[in-house]
Write a protein that binds this DNA or RNA. Structure first.
Lengths: 200, 200
DNA sequence: TGCAAACTTGCACTGAGTGTAGTGTAATTT
DNA sequence: AAATTACACTACACTCAGTGCAAGTTTGCA
């Protein structure tokens, strides 16, 4: 009972812990340098050096430079889907998504969002990846909706609702960043969904 | 009358003509090689050599490798906006977009579309750019809609309609490519807009 | 202890994209 | 027609992202 249990009190191996620490350190170093010097000017050599690893090891953890930024972005769809699963089944799908989105938006750190958005705009390729990830999130959201309302005859409707509601999220995020966080995201989201209701 | 008039019967200088010819030759060579060898395997050196220009000149005409593919994609939004301008003002905006989209889709060469779609899927970065260009087209469409219905109080509604209808276009294109062009694009589009009407 | 898998690194290489400076030719000016 | 300017094109040299490979080191486990 000493071989494994004695070495990982927290839960899983020291290896796993170090791995996560290294990944996190690389990510944070990368973002810091992106902010300090700009996305293009911060080279992978710089990041690796400051994170205390070799250039080659960078690619062991992240498959590309923009992967660092995408690792932040990619969480969004999953989190929204997760919150959606917690919503009661008797709501209308669109309302469920709205409420889930509102709960997510309340926990997003404002300044971080603005900084990251500005960062992503500095590189065309990154910006493209970000927008593309929205569409992927739409797919994730659709899958979560289907899970909740699996009736086959609702499929097209759900696909549409995913598109619509993620569109509302997208428009809200864009508006939020465009006006530099002047109005809170929660408010913008509520407005967007209200317009959705009113217009359709 | 021989110095200038005698040299440009078509209208504008020989320089302009050669320029367009070269740009076209590079583009066509690029696409051919992408198809023959795959996007990644076809290097810019290859394309430049086969197009009879230097590597450096490639970048004089296109700012990146994927710019060749994007130059095809980017037309879509503009064409749709153009057709939309030809629609009568007394239609409902959504109907106007639908009819414009139907007219565009009737003129799109099927095989070319399928080939290009397959190509774009072979590179993540290109695929991301393609999806991002959809969002840009949505913006172009919105601008065209505003031009036609400039009443300020309709703005949010039009933004929504642009999102919705371009979403329908996007879903149709995806379905078309997914099923390998089995059903004609016009039909898929009509269905998508019908669903839109029925569900909202 | 010893072995296998996971982690880490250096080295060498390909390919995209940029800066620069220079050449030839079309277009303009005088 | 000659001189000037602007554009198309090129070679060369460079930076940087990303990959393949062949090591080495560390950790987990029997």
């Amino acid at each position: 009972m000493k071989q494994t249990a004695g070495r990982n009190p927290p839960g899983e191996g020291l290896r796993e812990r170090k791995r996560r620490e290294t990944a996190k350190r690389i990510k944070e170093t990368g973002i810091r340098l992106f902010i300090e010097r700009g996305y293009d000017a911060a080279t992978i050599d710089d990041i690796a050096a400051e994170a205390g690893i070799s250039r080659r090891t960078f690619f062991y953890y992240y498959k590309s430079k923009d992967d660092i930024l995408m690792s932040l972005q990619s969480a969004l769809g999953d989190i929204l889907a997760e919150r959606l699963r917690e919503e009661p089944d008797d709501k209308r799908p669109l309302d469920a998504v709205r409420d889930a989105a509102l709960r997510v938006s309340a926990t997003v750190p404002k300044d971080e969002m603005l900084v990251l958005d500005r960062l992503m705009r500095s590189s065309e390729a990154v910006q493209a990846r970000k927008v593309a990830s929205y569409v992927q999130h739409e797919g994730t959201l659709f899958a979560a909706l289907r899970e909740k309302w699996p009736e086959p005859e609702r499929e097209t409707a759900l696909r549409l609702i995913a598109m619509l509601s993620f569109g509302a999220v997208r428009l809200s995020l864009d508006a939020f960043n465009r006006e530099g966080g002047k109005r809170p995201l929660v408010e913008l989201l509520r407005d967007a969904f209200d317009v959705l209701e009113a217009e359709i």
